[in-house]
């Protein structure tokens, strides 16, 4: 399972990439998409919505079930991936790339220390 070194991970299988000026991109991990399989619908937050860390912020639906996606950090949503509306399967095929879910302006960079690095996330999913 691909677990890129440059990302931060939440226990609930979201990843966060901190870009410039305190904005982070959020998606779900390859492990998560493999568990969900067949993603057919993604419900994304409105731009401007303020969320707190661990708050249910998006919904990813596979054929099987709907799964809540939790924001790894607190902040304000600055962008949602509109491409997923017409092509939700991108979350399956490119979970770390075109399948990203939303961008968030971090409220407190200190929260990043609550997230896992790649090694710790790998250990969590039992992947060497």
């Amino acid at each position: 399972m691909l677990v890129p070194e440059d990302l931060k991970y939440a226990e609930t299988h979201e990843w966060l990439r901190v870009d410039t000026d305190n904005v982070g991109t959020v998606g779900i991990t390859e492990h998560a998409q493999a568990e969900l399989t067949d993603i057919v619908y993604v419900e994304l937050p409105q731009v401007g919505t303020k969320v707190t860390a661990k708050q249910a912020t998006a919904v990813v639906e596979s054929v099987k079930a709907a799964s809540d996606i939790y924001s790894p950090v607190s902040g304000e949503i600055t962008e949602a991936n509109a491409e997923l509306e017409s092509n939700p399967a991108l979350v399956n095929t490119e979970p770390y790339g075109k399948g990203w879910l939303f961008k968030i302006r971090l409220q407190d960079k200190g929260e990043l220390s609550n997230l896992k690095d790649a090694a710790a996330y790998r250990a969590q999913i039992g992947d060497e």
């Binding site: 057919v40 619908y41 419900e43 919904v59 639906e61 054929v63 079930a65 709907a66 509306e85 017409s86």
Partner: peptide
Amino acid sequence: LAALKLAPKSAPPR
């Protein structure tokens, strides 16, 4: 008991 079909691009019904 009715069979329903949702409009394209709707969220999956459950």
